[in-house]
């Protein structure tokens, strides 16, 4: 309590000093409207600084938090009441829609992750194929290759692919474009012509 009192006393003293200083700087040669503007400027400047200090004070911040908590509490209570009322009448409350929206978003993100994995796999396969073509090995089932060799070759490649897949981490952020889909851009009328 004493802190609050000293805080406000200090601020008011500062305010009064500034107003007195502004009054003492009054010049009788300046026309009254101009002098009035100067006095008003000094007054508003002092009040503005006072407001700034006050809004930074713990007292104001606590008061603001208290006000917000009360407002949020009232709003929440109202929402709960409305939800209960709608549920009682077999209706759909906004809470249900929000829950549905969250489910859809989770579904979307799971799909996105799965598609990223598939993209990684395709990327790996493409790289493997390019590598094989580059080495001149071609596809494994060439004429003259014994069945056992072929199987062991496939096994080796499958193992290598698996190892690579495990090591694979997308280096580049993947845009959501693939999942969200891009709407067909509107054509420029001038281009259409």
């Amino acid at each position: 309590m004493a802190d609050n009192a000293s805080f406000f006393t200090r601020m008011w003293m500062d305010f009064a000093t500034r107003m007195m200083t502004a009054g003492m700087s009054f010049n009788p040669f300046s026309p009254p409207p101009q002098a009035a503007r100067q006095a008003r400027g000094a007054y508003l400047g002092a009040v503005s600084d006072f407001a700034e200090q006050m809004m930074r004070s713990p007292q104001f911040l606590s008061l603001m938090k208290q006000g917000m908590d009360t407002s949020l509490g009232a709003r929440k209570q109202m929402d709960e009441y409305m939800t209960a009322m709608r549920h009682d009448t077999q209706g759909t409350a906004s809470e249900d829609i929000d829950a549905l929206m969250i489910d859809v978003r989770h579904l979307g993100s799971r799909m996105s992750e799965r598609m990223d994995e598939i993209e990684g796999l395709i990327h790996d396969l493409g790289r493997r194929l390019d590598g094989m073509e580059g080495n001149g090995r071609g596809v494994p089932h060439t004429n003259g290759t014994r069945a056992g060799d072929r199987d062991s070759l496939r096994t080796r490649e499958r193992d290598a692919l698996r190892a690579e897949r495990q090591a694979y981490r997308p280096q580049e952020p993947v845009a959501r474009k693939a999942v969200k889909g891009r709407k067909r851009p509107r054509k420029n009328p001038q281009e259409r012509e």
């Binding site: 929206m101 845009a175 959501r176 474009k177 969200k180």
Partner: peptide, 23 residues
């Protein structure tokens, strides 16, 4: 709208903004 309340910074940065820059 209310339906957009779950949009995150990721949706804006890696979604919309990324799509716009690509376009």
């Amino acid at each position: 709208s209310r339906a957009d309340r779950h949009l995150t910074i990721d949706d804006y940065v890696n979604g919309y903004l990324s799509n716009v820059i690509d376009y």
